[in-house]
Design a binder for these strands. Sequence first.
RNA 1: GUGGGCGUAGCUCAGGUGGCUAGAGCUCCGGAUUGUGGUUCCGGUUGUCGUGGGUUCGAGUCCCACCGUCCACCCCA
Length: 425
Amino acid sequence: MSIQSIRGMNDILPTQTPVWQSVENTLRSVLESYGYQEIRMPLLEATELFSRSIGEVTDIVEKEMFTFIDRNGDSLTLRPEGTASCVRAGIEHGLLYNQIQRLWYGGPMFRHEKPQQGRYRQFHQMGAETYGLAGPDIDVEMIAMTARLWRQLGLTDLQLQINSLGSTAARAAYRDQLVNYFSSHYNELDEDSQRRLQTNPLRILDSKNPNMQSLIDNAPLLLDHLDDESQTHFATLKTWLDELGIPYQVNPRLVRGLDYYNRTVFEWVTQQLGAQGTVCAGGRYDSLVEQIGGRPTPAMGFAIGLERLVLLLLHHQLQIPDKTPHAYLIMAGPGTLQQGLRLAESLRDALPHLRLLTHCGGGNFKSQFKRADKSGALVALVLGEEEMAQHQVTLKYLRQEHPQLRVGLAEVVDYLKPLLQLSNE
RNA sequence: GUGGGCGUAGCUCAGGUGGCUAGAGCUCCGGAUUGUGGUUCCGGUUGUCGUGGGUUCGAGUCCCACCGUCCACCCCA
């Protein structure tokens, strides 16, 4: 067996890259249309950054990070998510103090999980983070922005779920109540939930075990224990979502896995990706900046799982941009190669958007035409000895009923121009 | 980390209960057609049968272990 890629780390092959490029371009243009600026962070950070921000006892930190000791003896970790790095960079470069920032980033993230549909060890996210804004207005903006993303991409079957976790203090108080409640029913908890009681009690509410449902239904509700300010914040958010005509579902069981969230949390989910239905998720994290060593700064953000988005788009067989070549240059006979390469370069000068493949590797006309056809090109440009003697090129249309014709070298451009408009960019 | 399905040619897959040099379609290459692809016809190339061990006169087939992959649990984007 020859060397293979690392488990859960996939190559994205040429047949797939057009979808990825299309998704990335769409996301970028929407983010820019809301005035968000790109920030790029390293893939590698001090391990402590993640253990302090994501939470010591979360699964991510406890067993899913790619962590190693470098040559200096420092513990480094491949980023399992983007928010912590973004906050670190913001603090480090003075981007956050007394300022308002709207940022976005993209790139690979790493988690040592067992791969399955929509979940990989190296996966890609695009995310946005905002700083210095505490009100529900920015929450609405970010949710509306994600709604626009799906519209741009042509996705119609994503559902928005929202919830409020309340203030950090209210959340902690609720957590205590929940622990008390479930502890008094300890024997009715399944094995997973008994463990969650120690690690993340809010997660018990999310259990998929049907035997747990009645117990969960009777548990105290997070929304009943919100502090007044969070309640108002959440109510306003809902009103404004209504006004923008963005449908949502309040899901009182929605808790995000990472410790730093408070108040607004949201998820966009689909039924079409099997078990990994969350395509986009985020929320407020008003205390994280301070926790990592900055001045108290309200913050809100979300991340999108690109693999899941791409899977969804493939599911829907949405139109993706065509990258097949417009023309394929066939050259045969003494001296035609030099002449042909010159012609190809001049055509690329004249038509910057032209996708022109020049034949390499020799061969007779027949084999060259075969390659031309296989490339998907719309026309074959033929430069043989006869053409060369008359300073001409033969144009043969490979995809449409159209007789082939001979044109002068200088006129080729005029015949190629219409082809550029014909193919969808 | 736990559980289940699956590993045969570049791709998609056949190969009852063990039995000769392991097959098909597609792809690829060449020819029919020495300056014309895509259709048709003819011919050709392609394999440590995931890896290692075991049972057997004999293993692609049975047993064990490992690896990979897919799906689910857990968790999460």
